[in-house]
Write a protein that binds this DNA or RNA. Structure first.
Lengths: 220, 220
DNA sequence: GAACTCTAAATTGTAGACAATATTTTGACG
DNA sequence: CGTCAAAATATTGTCTACAATTTAGAGTTC
């Protein structure tokens, strides 16, 4: 189960560097605020500065790094307000994605979503390590709905830009103790709305779902 | 009156090339589907291939060009479905921007928006050439609301990505004969909702406004 | 005459060297 | 001792050259 929405088989060195560095940022190995030296990173990845610069600029476009001309790049360091802004944007985009998905999703995809939620339900009672898989499963859920919108631009903005930021900061927020069950119930209602083709309801439920996650950001 | 949301004073050659090529694409000089040869463009702009490649990749991130590894870049050529997708995404983002703006906009900004609309009203009866200014004025209106959302990510997605695509394809769609007055009326209602701090209504009106523009895409 | 193959030209990907700018260190002065 | 200034260092921006891949075309074969 690939979580990264059909990652294009990295052909060029810049592509490989992009994916490698992005993974290091999202995993936390390269913490927010870390300076990214071109020479250092290039030798670490065994490539020249040319392709590495290209990777850095693409990470900048994805909002994972910030580049100051003549001064270099640093891993993005979001303020609380900026993280709220990410969730506000998510709410708008995921809401629309869910609305469109309700109109365009296939029955087989709805069935697959229900199966995914069954899986989550079983993992919910499980051990502590199941928590990690559950978190990733949550992203899988949202990825699938983004794709089901049949809107490539919308899906790309969510999957290529915002989700990486959310993952990056999720491990830093305490939150969701006992929210697993609640989130699962919300997911189930969303899939029901998708299956019924109720676009209005699907959008409403998704927006509430994302908003609920946003409210948790304030309790820390 | 700068329409490009605080364009950072182009310091680096790559920045200058980005803005120059972007202008050529949006204006139609570089038509959709045009092959962008690195060597050719580099000599045209009097720079080396290095900075030019960087400009190309940033245009790719803004969805104005498409790059195929080892094959080169072409100016993006949207299908009708993809253009609809742009408007669907706009509806989601501008709706949320308008909702947030209603909560955060300052009285002086509301007054400035009314003044802008007064200007449009006068230009409406005017000559044919006023049409052009009116079109640009429409973008100015939307830019200001995006900024008033106080959400940098949301504003950047609209101003840096989507609006360029919309401008690029607006000149190709026949549409809005006599829609000027209607659009102006919608704008006025939106500003009224902003001034009243009615977030729900502001979002609803903006979404309808964008949706109305989208429907026009089908009549050609 | 159409289709395939192989060669040659052109274009993109990458590496390394140099120039320009920022940062750090060192020293002097108040 | 702290602060400012200037040189030394390090880092980024840019250019040129080379390698790898794709594309165009000539030639051949069926």
């Amino acid at each position: 189960m690939s979580l990264t929405l059909d990652a294009p088989a990295a052909i060029t060195l810049a592509d490989q560097a992009l994916q490698a560095i992005q993974a290091r940022i999202v995993s936390g190995e390269l913490a927010p605020g870390t300076k990214l030296s071109e020479g250092e990173l290039a030798s670490e990845h065994g490539i020249s500065r040319g392709p590495l610069r290209e990777a850095i600029r693409r990470l900048e476009a994805r909002r994972l790094v910030e580049v100051v001309p003549n001064a270099g790049a640093t891993v993005v360091c979001l303020t609380h307000e900026q993280l709220l802004a990410v969730y506000e944007t998510r709410e708008a985009l995921e809401g629309m994605a869910c609305r469109l998905a309700a109109q365009r999703i296939e029955a087989s995809e709805v069935a697959a979503l229900h199966a995914l939620l069954d899986q989550h339900e079983q993992a919910l009672g499980g051990a502590a390590e199941a928590r990690y898989l559950q978190e990733e499963g949550d992203f899988d859920f949202h990825y699938r709905i983004a794709r089901a919108s049949r809107n490539e631009i919308l899906a790309s903005m969510l999957c290529d830009d915002l989700y990486h930021l959310v993952r990056m900061y999720r491990r830093r927020t305490p939150g969701d103790h006992g929210r697993g069950r609640q989130a699962l119930a919300e997911h189930r209602h969303i899939v029901d709305a998708l299956g019924a083709g109720d676009a209005e309801l699907a959008e409403l439920l998704m927006r509430r779902h994302v908003a609920a996650a946003r409210y948790l950001l304030n309790d820390n």
